[in-house]
Design a protein around this nucleic acid. Structure first.
Length: 883
RNA sequence: GCCGGAGUGGCGGAAUUGGCAGACGCGCUGGACUCAAAAUCCAGUGACCUUAUCAGUCGUGCGGGUUCGAUUCCCGCCUCCGGUACCA
């Protein structure tokens, strides 16, 4: 493919268009509303933050926010937290010379819009557009430096055309298939429900019973990528916890599969076990109730009990099953042969064995597995110890070795193999790993089993019985064949249905679109029906970061040259709630696209950061019950119940409508301005920590911005008279250079709260000074600008600069100027600080030590003692150890 | 239960490699300005002891340990938050 890439001149090379908002302001006081409108207008109109494709002259930086679902409620204070952090990084890096890609879009397909539509009769497309407009307006009011020309919307046919195209790529690679899968079917509502809409086996709305109903579903073979998703995730610069969660989700375990011959029948039961070394301890087997062999293995006498159990299991959701604390099960009446010792062991069914993992059947070793132990105890099945517990380990775990050997206690730890031998092989006395390979070799030689690997990860259920999603590019032809829609026929438009309510049958809403449903193959003229399932919300968010590299391309999903230039995403910031699903699905698609040669990197997101939750302030009474904020009176720093007068305790919780502790960012911006809002969000604490919102805290940064303003703007609106070109005194110069270093280092580390502290220290000092060097003021404004860009642009302009400061080179600091002439050294006696001495910066250890010993206070503490040791930390302290 | 993260003043938080705990901000107290208030500015603000100063003792969830020295490292616990759920 030929590159569509071209080099554009930076925006400043073009003449500036006219403007309706005055581009010079002269007010003497800090008026956030006025200057924020002015600069937001300026940036939008001049496209200040346009990312330049394939610019070879600058290093690129792709900084991505998790794009929001544009809900009807608008943004809450949690959204702008991560967005502010990335905006600071972007603005900082532009000044450091990077070509920054920073974009925003809308993950706009999904359930809430459809539900809202059904309640109000408004079409989801209408609600979605309205919500998007609101979100865009809100995000622009924060002054985020997005390249708005790259805005994308997953519900736009120009976008989902390519979502469908990627599906065709997966399909052609054999990674998409249909399978019978149980869905949550609610007969009363006549619809299929998503897992999150089902609570305790009942529908979230209406509380109607929900049953598990098998249905043909599209599945994606993510399991084929399990190993690579695991291995290639290791090296990523992601939070360790997130990588760990993905590892657990993928859930690789190594072990063996073993065949057990059914007694008196031709069938074999295949099981997966991670502990083939415990085969001699297997005293029964368990099949999942849904296992295909259950019918064949059930003896006439057990028929009724087995059927009843199967029925009960069917009506339970996975959740119900796992919440059951007591083990349940039914004997099938059949026996199988333990391959290592030829013993006949009973075959049971129980819902503690899951049909979807391994082979849906297990060998049970009750002596050394807690679940099997509980089951065996309940049903009086023999328990045979084949590991003698390590004495020390057993003592530590408070488990009696004798009890284990007697089969009255369970031991899952290490120990010595016993009673594990047949005529051909013995595991007795072997360590676990050797026993494992020994038995696997024996099983393989006898054709009874082999070493193998299993994953917890399942294939991805990819279809939804919903209206508001991407239609599948698939048609079912009259001759029974399935056709994947050709690229030329894409997009398959979502029909504009007026009625998209559930059909009352298992057919999805799209089956109501009669005209749309009829499909004729443009090549062969063959007729058929379109697929009526839609894709899940994950689909659009699986690749949006790629589209941002080339959002308007109608010839391809993206231009390879642009993809190669911008990818991978250098920094991705978003909530930890997406740690597994979104991030794993996106990695999966990316690897498929990589294998197909459409993208240039095997991993999409180089560095990942999760912002912490912003909590609301809540109150609870003496019994610990929460009290909604509108029922709380505040007096003298204490909190009381409006009705009962009881004193309440303040504590942080997740913001919720019911507690009335949700903070609306629009109100904060309206009252204090976007700059104060942004700074407070960053000042609350470390980005990744959960932290409580306290509106009083906004006052602090708001006051700081006022002080910063007054440091530079005089009472008449002109520059403060203290601002001059005279050189900086030594102390001020040191503070300036310290501040440049500290703020830059903190931005690199995304430690914004400490950068703000340093800027506050700077203003506290310089605000007092009668001489304020103009260059120092300009540098300060630049340091401030990533966090508070509006006030910074305004002050920059007033300091005499004609152009935006967005690309003004970041100030440099001089290591030499950070140094102090004299140092204050702490003198400790036996580790306790007892005095301070002032020494010249270059003083040698002996001189410092002598000065320390000479200090009067130190001498008091040394009285009657002998200094036996002196520890000197250069430039910091002297510790005199005395006896 | 398992996995991950965190416990520091009245509150949010800071502290480089183990080197003055509490930067910065909120709140509070006192003062200046004002007819008064708000705003602003100045000073103080971990606890205890002391009339106060100077000084001293204690202090980073709890109990131990290593070290001249521990918020930081090690061992054992407690509490809170997030994730996960019988994965053989």
């Amino acid at each position: 493919m030929q590159s569509l890439c071209y080099i554009k001149l930076p925006h400043s090379a073009f003449p500036t268009p006219h403007s309706h908002i005055p581009m010079t302001t002269s007010s003497a006081t800090y008026t956030p509303a006025e200057i924020e409108a002015k600069w937001q207008h300026y940036w939008l109109e001049r496209k200040t933050f346009k990312a330049v494709d394939c610019d070879p002259t600058r290093p690129k930086l792709y900084v991505l926010d998790m794009f929001p679902y544009p809900s009807g409620a608008g943004l809450h204070v949690g959204h702008p937290e991560g967005y502010t952090a990335t905006d600071i990084v972007c603005r900082y890096k532009r000044m450091k010379g990077f070509n920054v890609l920073h974009t925003m879009g809308w993950d706009a397909f999904g359930l809430p819009a459809e539900q809202y539509a059904m309640e109000t009769g408004t079409h989801p497309a209408v609600t979605t557009q309205k919500n998007i407009n609101r979100f865009r307006q809100q995000l622009q009011s924060f002054g985020f430096s997005y390249d708005w020309d790259r805005e994308i919307d997953t519900t736009d046919p120009k976008y989902y055309k390519w979502t469908q195209w990627i599906f065709t790529q997966l399909y052609k690679k054999g990674l998409a298939y249909k399978a019978e899968v149980a869905v949550n079917w609610c007969p009363a509502l006549g619809t299929v429900l998503a897992n999150e809409e089902v609570i305790d086996g009942h529908s979230e709305r209406g509380n109607h019973p929900v049953v598990r109903q098998p249905m043909k579903q599209w599945m994606l073979r993510i399991t084929q990528y399990a190993e690579r998703l695991l291995d290639e995730g290791e090296a990523l610069d992601w939070p360790a916890g997130t990588k760990e969660m993905q590892r657990n989700w993928i859930g690789k375990s190594t072990g063996a599969e073993v065949d057990f011959q059914v007694v008196g029948r031709p069938e074999k039961i295949r099981v997966f076990t991670t502990r083939p070394d415990t085969l001699f301890g297997a005293t029964y087997m368990v099949l999942a109730p849904e296992h295909a062999l259950v019918a064949a293995l059930t003896t006439p006498a057990q028929q009724a009990a087995v059927a009843a159990y199967q029925l009960a299991a069917k009506s339970k959701s996975d959740m119900d099953r796992t919440e059951a604390k007591d083990k349940t099960g039914v004997f099938t009446g059949s026996y199988a042969l333990n391959p290592v010792n030829g013993e006949q062991i009973p075959v049971w069914i129980s819902d503690y064995v899951l049909i979807s993992y391994g082979h849906g059947a297990i060998m049970a070793v009750p002596a050394h597995d807690t679940r099997d132990f509980e089951f065996a105890r309940k049903f009086n099945i023999p328990i045979r110890a084949i590991i003698r517990p390590d004495v020390a380990a057993a003592a530590k775990a408070e488990v009696s070795v004798d009890a284990v050997l007697a089969g009255t206690a369970c031991w899952t730890g290490d120990g010595e193999m016993i009673a594990s031998a047949n005529a051909e092989v013995s595991l007795n006395g072997l360590p676990v790993d050797t026993a494992m390979t020994t038995i696997c070799d024996w099983l393989a030689a006898k054709g009874l089993g082999k070493a193998t690997t299993q994953f917890k990860l399942r294939d991805w259920l990819f279809s939804r019985q919903r209206y508001w999603g991407e239609p599948f590019p698939v048609a079912h032809l009259e001759d029974g064949t399935e056709k994947i829609i050709s690229d030329a026929e894409l997009p398959v438009l979502l029909p504009e249905l007026a009625d998209f309510k559930p059909t009352g049958t298992l057919d999805p809403p799209l089956s109501k679109a009669k005209e749309w449903l009829a499909y004729t193959d443009p090549g062969t003229g063959r007729k058929g029906l379109r697929e009526t399932n839609t894709m899940p919300q994950w689909a659009g968010s699986c690749w949006y970061y790629l589209r941002f590299a080339d959002p308007h391309n109608d010839q391809a999903a993206w231009d390879p040259a642009k993809e190669k230039y911008w990818m991978p995403v250098d920094l991705y910031v978003g909530g930890a709630e997406h740690a597994v699903l979104h991030l794993l699905y996106a990695r999966f698609w990316h690897k498929v696209l990589f294998d197909l040669g459409y993208v240039s990197t095997p991993e999409p997101f180089k560095k990942l950061v999760h912002q912490g939750l912003i909590l609301g302030i809540s109150y609870r009474d003496g019994r610990g019950f929460p009290v909604a904020n509108d029922k709380v009176a505040h007096r003298d720093g204490s909190h009381f119940h409006l009705e009962t007068g009881e004193e309440l305790v303040e504590y942080p919780t997740k913001m919720s409508k019911s507690l009335k502790n949700v903070v609306n960012p629009d109100e904060i911006v309206g009252q204090y301005g976007a700059d104060a809002f942004r700074m407070y969000e960053m000042f609350m604490g470390p980005l990744t920590d959960a932290k409580p919102w306290n509106t009083a805290g906004v006052e602090g940064v708001y006051r700081f911005l006022h002080r910063a303003w007054k440091m530079i703007v005089g009472p008449d609106g002109a520059l403060a008279p203290q601002i001059q070109d005279a050189p900086l005194p030594r102390d001020q110069e040191r503070l300036l250079h310290q501040t440049i270093k500290k703020v830059g280092d903190d931005y690199e580390a995304m430690s914004f709260n400490t950068a703000i502290s340093q800027l506050m220290i700077f203003v506290n000092e310089f605000g007092k000074c009668e001489l304020r060097n103009r260059q120092a003021m300009a540098a300060f404004v630049q340091l401030l600008s990533p966090m508070a860009p509006h006030i910074a642009e305004e002050l920059w302009q007033r300091l005499g600069h004609a152009d935006t400061l967005a690309y003004a080179p970041w100030p440099a600091y001089d290591e030499e100027k950070l140094k102090l002439d004299t140092l204050e050294i702490v003198v400790q006696v036996n580790g306790k600080p007892r005095g301070k001495i002032t020494v010249a910066a270059g003083a040698d250890a002996a001189a410092v030590e002598a000065a320390a010993q000479a200090d009067l206070k130190v001498q008091e503490h040394l009285a009657g003692k002998t200094v036996v040791k002196v520890i000197t930390v250069p430039g910091r302290l002297v510790n005199l150890v005395a006896r």
